[in-house]
Design a protein around this nucleic acid. Structure first.
Length: 431
RNA sequence: UCCUCGAUAGCUCAAUGGUAGAGCGGUUGGCUGUUAACCAAUAGGUUGGGGGUUCGAGUCCCUCUCGGGGAGCCA
């Protein structure tokens, strides 16, 4: 049982406490040992004097290696020489597990392939601890914001029988001699939930079998998907920018030490203030073509385009009014322009790209039927979804935000694989 | 699936076609305030697999495997 943790050092000055942790690094100087101990909540330097602990014990402890587990008892004091501000004068050390072999991960640069192979140990390092702590804050902050704004947690199933976008990007599995798929979005179920509760959200894993090999893609990632009844696209964008602003403020407030570990330039995050600019797809094409991208109507916005866009705005940007043909069947056609839909993507600055995709949903029965048919989908599999338009249909909106992409933006990491404990990519499912 | 780069000690990397090396980590010792400590000694190699060219291949060629980056793809 742990009675003390390093994050409580400030309240424990001059008290004798026991740290249950692991040895992060050690230096020796003949008659003095400097042990840096971590316990998950923080790091602290422990000072062992030879004349205090005895010559034999000193000689034994000198041979401890990185990541040995131990309990260290001593008194806490403030010390400006320590990067963490506090030190412990050690009275006693109890070693639980002395490592008999070389610890694979050193306190130096490693290649990403090597670190990924040792992800189960990599997560012990300060940088990975900071990223994953921020991820946890993003998730908790998301839940708090939504709960405070009248949303009810309403989880979508992960095993599904139908394929909203065709089967190419789905993981298929055997479900008692029937075909089933891992969910690639909880949205359609959220639409049903919104008609029951008004405002709902789900937050959970999403699976995409695409063979994407980029810094912005995982095959398993987490997404929050809020859905709101009696809501138009204008109000939806206000909620989205409200949520993003809330989360940034919360990370800056609660994760100050983690951002420091990551050397994140927080001035760029402090600048983010809603409302965010709204720019139509057509205007984005014009901007890109001014930068020699030779885009024509209907072209996708790719990774390089996202970089150009983020160079032109310090704030996140909503891109609105996408061409109908490039977007899924459930998005509502713009009433004044049948060539576009009421969908909006939010592009984060600093090259982090799309972090939110959302839309007003098609709420007219006849229109949704024709869109399902046009998309080549089987209406029978979507009967329950069509029912939402048959029984008390209302204007409604929703959006999905990628937890890892948002976390990567907050942390300033260049690849989202570090923002989830055990990333799943096309070439890696171990560990 | 395509393009591109790569694979040498546990890790990070050197080595003009001519005797395989360094730093870190490990081990042993030294040092009373170290900050990825420092100093000294020491162990550690089928140069990813297979084939070829050559008097001679880590180095050149072919092929396979694995990995990085990117494209396509991606509510």
């Amino acid at each position: 049982m742990r009675n003390f943790t390093i994050d409580k050092a400030k309240e424990s000055i001059d008290k004798v406490v026991t740290i249950d942790g692991w040895l992060y690094n050690m230096r020796s100087s003949g008659k003095i040992l400097f042990m840096i101990v971590r316990d998950g909540t923080g790091f602290i330097q422990c000072i062992i004097m030879k004349n205090q602990i005895g010559e034999d014990r000193f000689a034994e402890l000198k041979h401890l290696t990185q990541e040995s587990s131990l309990s260290v008892t001593g008194s806490i004091r403030e010390d400006k020489r320590s990067p963490w501000g506090y030190e412990m004068d050690v009275q006693n050390v109890n070693v639980h597990h002395e490592i008999k072999e070389e610890y694979p991960i050193q306190l130096k640069e490693h290649g990403v392939g090597f670190l990924s192979q040792y992800r189960h140990l990599w997560i012990r390092t300060p940088s990975q601890r900071a990223v994953l702590k921020i991820r946890a804050e993003v998730i908790q902050g998301t839940r708090d914001f939504l709960n405070e704004n009248g949303f009810v947690n309403f989880d979508s199933p992960i095993l599904t029988g139908s394929a909203p976008e065709g089967t190419t990007s789905l993981f298929e599995l055997d479900y008692f001699d029937e075909k089933a798929y891992l969910s690639q979005s909880g949205q359609l179920y959220q639409e049903a939930g919104a008609m029951a509760f008004g405002r709902v959200y789900c937050l959970g894993p999403t699976f995409r079998a695409e063979k994407s090999k980029t810094r912005r893609h995982l095959t398993e990632f987490w997404m929050v998907e809020p859905e709101m009844a009696y809501c138009d696209i204008k109000e939806s964008l206000q909620i989205q920018e409200g949520m993003v602003s809330y989360l940034i403020n919360r990370i800056l407030t609660n994760c100050d030490s983690e951002l420091k570990v990551l050397k994140r330039d927080t001035s760029k995050l402090e600048k983010i203030k809603a409302p965010f600019p709204r720019v139509t797809y057509k205007e984005i094409l014009e901007l890109l073509n001014k930068n020699d991208r030779e885009k024509k109507w209907g072209d996708d916005i790719t990774g390089l385009d996202e970089t150009i866009i983020s160079e032109n705005f310090e704030q996140p940007v909503f891109i609105t009014h996408f061409p109908s043909d490039s977007k899924p069947f459930y998005m509502k056609t713009t009433p004044t322009d049948s060539s576009t839909v009421l969908g909006a993507d939010l592009m984060a600055p600093e090259g982090y790209g799309e972090i939110i995709g959302g839309s007003q949903r098609e709420d007219d029965l006849e229109t949704i039927l024709s869109k399902i048919e046009k998309a080549g989908l089987n209406p029978e599999a979507y009967q329950w979804y069509i029912d939402i338009r048959r029984f008390g249909s209302v204007p409604h909106c929703g959006y999905g935000m990628g937890i890892e992409r948002f976390t990567a933006w907050m942390c300033g990491t260049d690849h989202i694989r570090e923002t989830i404990p055990f990333p799943r990519t096309i070439e890696r499912i171990y560990p």
